[in-house]
Every structure is written in C-alpha cells, then in structure tokens.
Design a protein around this nucleic acid. Structure first.
Length: 727
RNA sequence: GGGCGCAUAGCUCAGUUGGUUAGAGCGUCUGUUUUACACACAGAAGGUCCUAGGUUCGAGUCCUAGUGCGCCCACCA
C-alpha cells in the first residue's frame, strides 16, 4: 500500500464523505442492489415528529434499525428502510402557536385558519431539513427516494380513503357523547392522551336538601348542580325502598334538581355513603350509567372550564374552582354538609398541553372497536375471509396467533389488557393543523368523500383527525396504498421489522394493527422490537425543565457516529430503559481507533500485491476456522434479534482475540525469511480483518467502510453490499 | 385497585433456553515506548450475583415468600 494511514482514526474526516459515497452508490434503494435477491426485508422508520430536532432517543432507534437493515442487506435480502416524518398535529399545532404568540403576540385565531396552517407548514419544512441531516449523520441507510410525510399528497389520499372505507363500513360514526376535553388546548383528546396525576383532594358528604333522604359523597361539588340521579347498589338494604322514586324541583345551590333514584350493579356500597350522585354530562362513568337508565344530561361546565347558565344563578359564569368553594359554602350555610375527608385522588391531565381534562358532552367522530362488520379478505389467522369480525378481534388475533411477535414477550400482556378495556376511539380534534375530516354538509345532507363534492353550498367538517389516525396507516401508506396493485405494497408489505418505543405501543403499534387488518386484511409487520427510554447518566428522563438534553450531533462531533451507535446498542436489551453515559461512548471511540490500528498493522505488513491464494499453514487455517465458528454464533444472535449481545461479542473478538492474541502471535511469522510462512500469515490476517469488518459493519458502518476501501482483498465496490460471511 | 419490571465489581449495565475459574465500559493500583494503537500493552485489586426457604447432580439463571426501588393501566364517586 502506497499511502500511510494516520496514526489515529478521525471520524470527522471520514463520515460525511462515506455517507455521500453510499448515497451516490444508490444502494439504499433496493432496486439498485447487486446480485439476485429473492427475499424482501422491509422496515418503516417510526416517523419522528416534525416539531424540530432529533434527540438521543432517536439515535438509539436508528442505531439498532440501521444495524438490522445493514445485516439483511449484506445477507442478500432485497432490503428497504423507508424514512419519513410525522406531522404530529397536536404537538406541532401547539408549538407553532406558542412561537407565533411569542413573536407576534397573536394567537391562531387572530391570523385565521389559512394563514396559521401556512405558518405551520413553513415551520415543518424547516424542521424536516434539520432532521434529514441528523438522520444522515447517524449513518442511517434509508432510501431517501421513498421518503414520506404523513401530510403529503399521497399520505393525504391514503388518510381520506381509509376514513371513507371505515365510514362506509359503519365503523366511523359521529355522536354526541361525553369525551375528554382539554380546556387549555381547546380540543378533545382520546383516552390514551390522558395522563393521571395523584393529588390530595377532599371528599365531601352531604344531602341535596334537608328533606332529601340519601346522603351522597363527591370530590367535585361543583358538578353536583348537573346531577340527575342518585345511584345505589340494588342489594343495598339502606336505600332499597327508594329505588325508582323521583324527587322534583329540589332547591340546590341556586338551581333546581330533578333526581331519580336508580339501582346499578357497579356501585360499591362500601365506599362513602354507598350512594352516588350521577352527573351524566361530566363523568365518563356517570355517562355510562345515564345511558343504561336513560337519564337526562345537563351540561353545567363549558369548554373554558367555566360554569354554564344551566348551572344556576349561584355559580353561572364562574370557574370550576371558584364554583366548588361557593357550593361548599352554600352547603355549610344550609347545614347540609355532614363530612369533609382528606382523600388521595387522581386528576386527569392532557399529555400534550398539561391542561386539566374536563369531561364534556360533545359532537365528535369515533372509530367503533366493538362493532361487527364483514371482512372481505383476511390473511389474519383466526379470521376467515367474508366472516364477521370486529376491529378489536383483529387487534387481538394478529398477536395471539403469532403472526406478529412482540419483543420482549412480556408486553403481550400489556397489549391484550389494553385491548380488552378499549372503548371507541375519538378521532376528531378541534385543531387546525392536521388532516381535515373528509365529510361535507349541506342542509340536512351529509356526504363522506375523498374529494370535495360537486355543486355549491357544501361545507366541510371543521375538525381535523387525531394524528395517530394517519400514523396508523404508515406501513402501507408509504408503499403505494390505496393502490392495491402498487408494486411496493406487494413486495414489501407486511413489513419485516418495527422498532418503536414501548410508550407508544397503544398509540401506534395497536392502531397500525387495527388499520392494516381492516384495510388490507393482513398484519402491518411481523416483528415488533420495543425499545426503552434513554435517560441521562443519573437515570433521569431527558426533559426541558431539567435542562439535561444532549444533542446527538455534539456527541457525534466529539466521538464519532460509530462510537455513539455502538454505545446505544451494546448492553441495551429490548424493552429496557438505559442510561446514557459519554464514558461509554468514549470507550467505543477507542475501539474504532483500535480497529483502525489493526488495519494499519495489517497493511504495513502486506506487500502491494499480496498473495491472496497463498497456501495456509495449519495454525493459520485454524484461526480462520475459529473465526467462522464465532461468526456463526454471532449470526445466530442476530437472527434472534440479540444485537446487543452480538455487538459485544464482535467487540471482544476484535480487540482481545484478533489484536491481543492473533496479531501478537503473527509478528514472528510476518518477519520470517520463509516466504510460505510469511505469506500464509499475511493471508490469514487479511481474511480475518476482512471478515471482522463485515460483521462489524452493521454496527460501525463508517470506520469499517473506510478501512474496507483500503484493503487489497475486497471484492465489491463497497462494504455495504459485501456478502455476509456465513449463511 | 389491577398488571409488569428491576435489585450482579466503586459507578452504569450485559449474562439467550440452568452447566466448567460470573462479563463489558468507565474508574482504581503496579509496571511497560514492544512491526500498529498511550484512544495502547502486560498484570493486579475489587462480587455472600437483595434476603430467606425450595427444586436439581448442578441456580445469577427455575419456584415460593419477603424487602427496597421503578413503570404501566384504572375517573372508589
């Protein structure tokens, strides 16, 4: 070799150049891959939110996915890794509105829907550029020619088509129901977007009036002006005599209540007084009771968490918190309050805005998960074509029968538990950024269609869709669906591997299974490898308030992308949280340098034209065979998705076997005057190094590719398309 | 209230189906310019694998109970 390698490996000089070489080679696109490839292997990237820059959690995700993808590419599969971004309606809407207020002092209403959406689109375009650059820097071998966005034209068509198909099947319906309302974000949210936070509260026990026979308990006295019933357990002897009685025009805190006494199995006679004041409009549980007993619904709280006129003269127009105090005072003054007790309770919070959820009755769109429909074509085991099924059953069977394997297996339980308790999915949001609901109204007419209906006077539903509705279609909306004959769809769906965080198993994984099952009659992916949360070195979550965020680009600048990737794979098993420590990254930076110097040593010891067919001495042959055995073992680990173990074994082999033992031992042979001895040693080292580069490449693609380019025994243009050494 | 996870070297964590002297990174100590690498090499110290029982020829690994952390789900009003 003519040129001397520098003493130390410099990732900064190498990485950008190498990534460019890969992109220009076209090998990220499966159609351009060399050799005949039968089996396809496809991965959809979990699309990062278009809200801004990527964090280390993304690096974790891409490090593993890229390793998986590169392994399969080398194995000879027709390999596709499809990139893209998610418009993240609620998150982006919030972020841009905040920015707008900060910069101009105007909120979205002040500038209007059209101008606001434009504002968001500009922001998103900019963010996406940053994110694309970051994905390149980590070395992700994604097919940029297929890049997708959940709001682009193709995905919009998919969303509208999916909506219409579900609407036509009767699985999407509009209804006036009690939903989770976020007064801060001014939108409804689904059950999954509600978080619970423990808080100290007060349990008040009282009667509506002095001549009302039953005491009730509540933590929310302000809602009691909306009560229409008192529920008791049917077997409760204390109250049995009152069942069915109605008390009309009870004077209560500035309003008049009509209370019916009803019996319901779900009431716990042991709790409180054993009697519940039923508030159908402001409790999801009470709304269920109300429905069972056909109780009237009185809305006493509005969208701004203030009391309505219906709430009566005493509290009308007040905030809920003030109303509570007023009513408690009124109860005390009228000697109706018999108990106040400190109690631990959970309050509901909207996960995005942090607003306190107020259950409200509202006209919203829902996906019916328990409603039966006839599935035309099903490849899901346990669900026959042309049979009746439900979305819930699709979600259940797809996993139950093993067509989808979730790793680690313990999450199966979580998944099934969620499905069993699942209620209809509220998919409408009162936001401006997102896919607009493809339904139009004209007078009494309602029309669901992909395009604006012909004729004038049609007005589109103002609501937008839950962002997860479009994400649910991701594995196939990116492959040409709704064109059922799209070549990509045929070749690459179901996808092979999906690598999301466990925190979105409900939001996303379950919804993808639902959507793919209904629309395609098949599963969206075969393997779900869940990853955990990456925390800081002290085990704390990364958060803005702690200001402990680490920019992956800084780490890459300092230690190299290979080192970062390695540190995010080794020792991090599926579904486990991990702490991020720069010391670990530094360790693998040293490893990259070690490999570099192994290559230097080997290249220093081979002639310009080494004899690649030199006959091998027995001991050298043995070294090759031992390495083969190790590679078999590693390959087995990778087939079983134990990348976190495989990478460590490779590390150990290269450093402590190849460098510490084999190279050390070879030094005498390399300086031998016997040509055969010398050439045998040279050949052995070249082959061991070559194989080491191949097996390490999925994990540390840059440094291995760079070294590969300098080796005399390469037989491909680039390492990325080299053949995996065993099969 | 239901479900799940974790507890292994000073620190952060691996340990696949139970099988020889329990591993990695970082840290500590002692040496060493040696055909590459001081981002290195040679060597060393450091572990009752949370506790107590049990199964087994054999347990960090399986079972039971307990202790301490952590997570998820759930509107006991």
């Amino acid at each position: 070799m003519s040129k001397e390698l520098p003493k130390t490996y410099n990732p900064k000089e190498t990485e950008e150049k190498i990534y460019k070489t890969w992109e220009e080679s076209g090998f990220f696109t499966p159609e351009n891959l060399p050799d005949k490839r039968e089996a396809s292997f496809s991965v959809s990237i979990p699309p990062p939110n278009a809200t801004g820059t990527l964090h280390l959690g993304h690096s974790l995700e891409y490090s593993l996915q890229d390793a998986v993808v590169r392994y399969h590419r080398m194995k000879g599969d027709l390999t596709l890794w499809l990139p893209g971004t998610d418009h993240a309606a609620i998150a982006t809407n919030t972020k841009v509105e905040k920015k707008l207020i900060k910069e101009t002092g105007k909120n979205r209403h002040a500038i209007g829907r059209e101008a606001f959406v434009k504002e968001v689109e500009d922001f998103v375009a900019e963010s996406r550029g940053v994110m694309q650059k970051q994905i390149r820097q980590i070395g992700a071998s994604v097919d940029w020619s297929r890049e997708a966005f959940t709001m682009d034209d193709k995905r919009s068509l998919a969303v509208k088509t999916a909506f219409k198909k579900m609407y036509d099947a009767g699985l999407i319906y509009k209804d006036y129901k009690v939903i989770n309302w976020d007064p801060k974000g001014q939108t409804s949210v689904s059950d999954d977007e509600v978080e619970h936070r423990p808080e100290k509260g007060m349990l008040y026990t009282f009667k509506y009036s002095s001549d009302f026979p039953i005491e009730i308990s509540t933590t929310r006295p302000e809602t009691k002006v909306g009560d229409t019933a008192v529920a008791i357990h049917p077997d409760d002897k204390r109250y049995k005599q009152y069942i069915g009685k109605e008390f009309k025009n009870i004077e209560f805190a500035g309003t008049k209540l009509n209370i019916k006494i009803i019996a319901d199995e779900n009431i716990d006679p042991e709790f409180g007084t054993g009697a519940v004041g039923v508030t159908p409009a402001h409790s999801l549980v009470d709304a269920d009771i109300a429905q069972r007993h056909s109780l009237p619904m009185v809305q006493v709280i509005n969208e701004y968490a203030k009391m309505t006129e219906e709430a009566g003269t005493l509290v009308s127009g007040k905030k809920t918190k003030e109303a509570r105090e007023i009513i408690v005072t009124w109860l005390k003054e009228n000697k109706l309050l018999s108990g106040e007790e400190n109690i631990d309770l959970n309050i509901s919070i909207a996960d995005r805005s942090g607003g306190i959820i107020e259950p409200l009755p509202k006209l919203q769109w829902f996906v019916a998960v328990n409603k039966k429909f006839k599935i035309k074509e099903s490849k899901i085991k346990g669900i026959e074509s042309n049979s009746e099924t439900t979305l819930k059953e699709i979600m259940k069977k797809s996993v139950e029968n093993g067509q989808i394997e979730i790793m680690p297996g313990r999450f199966n339980k979580t998944y099934f538990h969620w499905i069993n308790n699942l209620r209809d999915w509220n998919i409408s949001r009162q936001l401006w950024y997102g896919h607009r609901i493809p339904v139009w109204y004209k007078g009494d007419e309602t029309l669901c269609d992909i395009n604006h209906p012909e004729g004038s006077g049609w007005e589109q539903d103002p609501d937008t869709l839950d962002t997860w509705f479009s994400s649910a279609l991701w594995t196939f909306s990116t492959l040409g669906w709704p064109d059922k004959n799209a070549p990509d769809l045929k070749k690459f769906h179901p996808t092979s591997f999906m690598n999301p965080g466990y925190e979105i198993i409900f939001f996303w994984v379950a919804r993808m299974i639902l959507a793919s099952g209904f629309l395609l009659g098949e599963v969206p992916f075969k393997k779900v490898y869940l990853h955990g949360i990456l925390r800081d070195s002290k085990g704390r979550k990364f958060s803005k308030s702690l200001d402990n965020g680490i920019d992956p680009i800084e780490i890459i600048d300092h230690y190299g992308a290979d080192a970062l990737r390695m540190s995010l794979i080794i020792g991090i098993g599926p579904g486990n949280d991990a702490n991020f420590d720069t010391n670990k990254v530094r360790g693998y930076q040293h490893f990259a340098n070690k490999l570099w110097n192994i290559a230097r040593f080997v290249l220093l010891n081979v002639t310009e034209k080494p004899n690649l067919n030199a006959s091998l001495k027995d001991k050298d042959q043995t070294k090759l065979e031992e390495q083969k055995e190790l590679i078999k073992d590693i390959t087995n680990d990778m087939e079983e998705y134990r990348y976190y173990i495989a990478a460590e074994k490779i590390y150990h082999y290269i450093w402590h076997i190849l460098a510490d033992e084999i190279i050390e031992d070879s030094k005498t042979d390399l300086s031998s005057k016997d040509l055969e001895t010398k050439e045998s040693a040279q050949r052995m080292l070249l082959e061991l190094l070559m194989n080491s580069l191949k097996i390490l490449h999925p994990f540390m693609p840059f440094v291995t590719e760079e070294i590969y380019s300098k080796l005399p025994n390469k037989n491909k243009i680039l390492l990325i398309v080299e053949k995996w050494p065993v099969n």
